[in-house]
């Protein structure tokens, strides 16, 4: 089966519908599926729920879909970098479910691994635990969290072969593998598609079984907090 598509729009063709649930990779603006987000904006799909650690900034990442009011709900751990997000949230236009970062990552990993729920001690005794099942194991209290199964995963990797085997680069890996696993269908955008056989099978980070469609493209890869030291300190 051919997985490689000519553009982000083609790679998403037939997969988008209003009210759908999308799981997205990335941390801050690092390793986000920027081409697929742009294509979703252009497709105009509405009432989206996103499971994504962050919500981008006003004009990049998921932020571009907030500007066009395409997002109904965010499931995130931290949304502090986005003024438009805050405006919509405070005015009640946007629903927000805070998940602890590790709980969100594990919810994605579990959902994609056939695990509908798991117990964690993260958040016990906090607002996060309210309304959730509590259970003691070996004298410690844990809460039940649900696995996430999304209608669609959108992720970004560094390299892929045409069978969808993915290699990530540095901290741009972050939420991409668990996000990819959590979707019924996964579309990955990459910087380079290399010939079959040129990736070392021992160095593949995410096997192609999790990736259904692929697109190669140019990435802006914006830096959110450019921080440097003086050269003489080096």
């Amino acid at each position: 089966m051919k997985k490689v598509y000519g553009s982000a729009a083609e790679a998403l063709d037939g997969l988008l519908f209003d009210g759908m649930f999308i799981s997205a990779g990335g941390f801050g603006l690092c390793g986000i599926p920027e081409l697929l987000l742009q294509a979703i904006k252009e497709a105009g799909t509405k009432d989206l729920t996103f499971a994504s650690n962050n919500a981008g900034v006003d004009d990049f990442g998921i932020g571009i879909l907030l500007q066009t009011r395409q997002v109904r709900k965010m499931i995130s751990s931290y949304v502090g970098e986005n003024a438009e997000f805050m405006r919509q949230y405070l005015s009640g236009e946007l629903e927000l479910e805070f998940n602890p970062q590790g709980t969100l990552a594990e919810r994605m990993r579990a959902g994609g691994s056939g695990i509908p729920g798991f117990y964690t001690k993260t958040g016990v005794g906090t607002q996060i635990a309210e309304g959730k099942e509590h259970k003691d194991f070996d004298g410690e209290t844990y809460i039940l969290e649900r696995g996430i199964v999304a209608d669609l995963s959108i992720v970004k990797a560094w390299k892929a072969d045409d069978t969808g085997n993915l290699v990530f680069r540095k901290t741009a890996r972050n939420f991409n593998p668990p996000a990819a696993m959590s979707g019924k269908v996964c579309v990955a955008e990459v910087e380079e598609i290399v010939p079959r056989g040129s990736l070392d099978p021992d160095h593949i980070h995410l096997p192609g079984i999790y990736v259904h469609r692929l697109v190669q493209g140019e990435h802006e890869k914006r830096i959110e907090q450019r921080t440097t030291r003086k050269r003489e300190d080096a």
């Binding site: 970098e81 970062q101 994605m108």
Partner: peptide, 23 residues
């Protein structure tokens, strides 16, 4: 841009560095 810390600041790697996913 592919190498940042949890505060989203650019950082560097060391000889001992390893990378892994969020889960």
């Amino acid at each position: 841009p592919d190498l940042i810390n949890a505060g989203k600041q650019t950082i560097t790697e060391l000889a001992r560095t390893s990378y892994f996913d969020s889960a």
